[in-house]
């Protein structure tokens, strides 16, 4: 990871110095373990604050919309796919961007690490050679990184950026033999009552903070449907039906656009597996429209096009 960080700093510095970009967006080391902060730098002398390791879970594409300047940005597989989605949806122009591609081996899931150390207080987490060393008051434990990966990273099929101007390192091998939708299939095998029970229980702790929505780079609407007042589609109290309405519509707004970057789930302060909603849509988009979001700049998203012989069996 050190080599990545050095290369990022170096590239950012030269891009800013040469005036190729006005701002460079990356991460800096966080103040708490397993958490790095999205960070923008415009002063070439401050690029040494940039940092990269497996705790860069927040999607940087959040910070691209409505910008008119030239931006340097780092992007791993999923973030690069979100850049493509932004380009397709006219949120940013390719010419504005200098993309420093990052072949990614996945992000560490802070929840998995805390679980693995039995919820003892963690003071430091280090990474070396595919291992994660967790330190706390009076303990030090080592885990294989693959055992503490974020769930979406463990199932990731596109670790390498799909769009970039430069790569920080050689591409990493893509994961093979992964059954991406295993959890969705498990729910599909349940009956309706069981599914309703599963999802209501899942969101029962939701506090409607909208971290999942705001962490999502796809959520850039000027006025979100939850904020609409006339008509008001969803109540604002923590009534279970209102909470469910929010989750269904939030997910549906991501239909055919979600890259499964996992930012929503990582952001949730209550640990709700909000990806269970979007994953079903990803599965359907793949099965019905052979679509994976953000893979190509020259294809319109599935909800924006049609085929005469589209799936029609559900219509009488």
């Amino acid at each position: 990871m050190k080599e990545y960080t050095e290369k990022i700093r170096e590239t950012a510095k030269s891009l800013l110095k040469e005036g190729k970009v006005d701002i460079f967006i990356g991460y800096r080391k966080g103040t708490v373990p397993m958490m790095n902060e999205p960070f923008a730098v415009s002063d070439p002398d401050k690029t040494d604050l940039l940092y990269w390791d497996s705790n860069c879970g927040m999607n940087l594409c959040n910070y691209l919309t409505k910008r008119t300047d030239r931006i340097g940005i780092i992007a791993n597989g999923c973030n690069s796919r979100n850049i493509v989605t932004h380009i397709i949806e006219n949120q940013i122009k390719r010419e504005q961007l200098y993309i420093l591609g990052i072949p990614c081996t996945g992000m560490i899931d802070p929840r998995a690490v805390r679980r693995a150390v039995k919820y003892r207080e963690i003071t430091d987490v280090e990474e070396s050679n595919g291992r994660v060393i967790v330190k706390g008051d009076g303990f030090e434990e080592t885990f294989e990184k693959k055992d503490v990966l974020q769930k979406n990273c463990a199932e990731c099929l596109h670790r390498n950026p799909v769009i970039y101007d430069e790569l920080v390192a050689e591409k990493v091998p893509e994961q093979e033999g992964i059954e991406t939708f295993r959890d969705v299939k498990k729910i599909e095998a349940m009956g309706s009552d069981e599914r309703w029970g599963f999802f209501t229980r899942m969101i029962s702790s939701c506090i409607r903070c909208y971290a999942c929505r705001n962490a999502c780079p796809l959520c850039y609407c000027t006025t979100c449907f939850v904020d609409e007042a006339q008509p008001q589609w969803v109540g604002k109290s923590n009534d279970p039906t209102d909470t469910m309405t929010f989750h269904i519509l939030r997910a549906f707004h991501c239909a055919g656009r979600c890259t499964d970057c996992g930012a929503c789930e990582r952001a949730c302060p209550m640990g709700i597996n909000v990806r269970q909603f979007t994953k079903k849509l990803n599965k359907d988009a793949l099965e019905l429209f052979s679509w994976e979001a953000g893979m190509r700049e020259d294809r319109r998203p599935p909800m924006d096009v049609y085929k005469v012989d589209d799936y029609n069996d559900f219509i009488r």
Partner: peptide, 14 residues
């Protein structure tokens, strides 16, 4: 297309 996706999601949820 929109309905296909929505029906799938709603039925998935229960």
């Amino acid at each position: 297309r929109k309905f296909a996706m929505l029906k799938g999601l709603l039925e998935h949820i229960g």
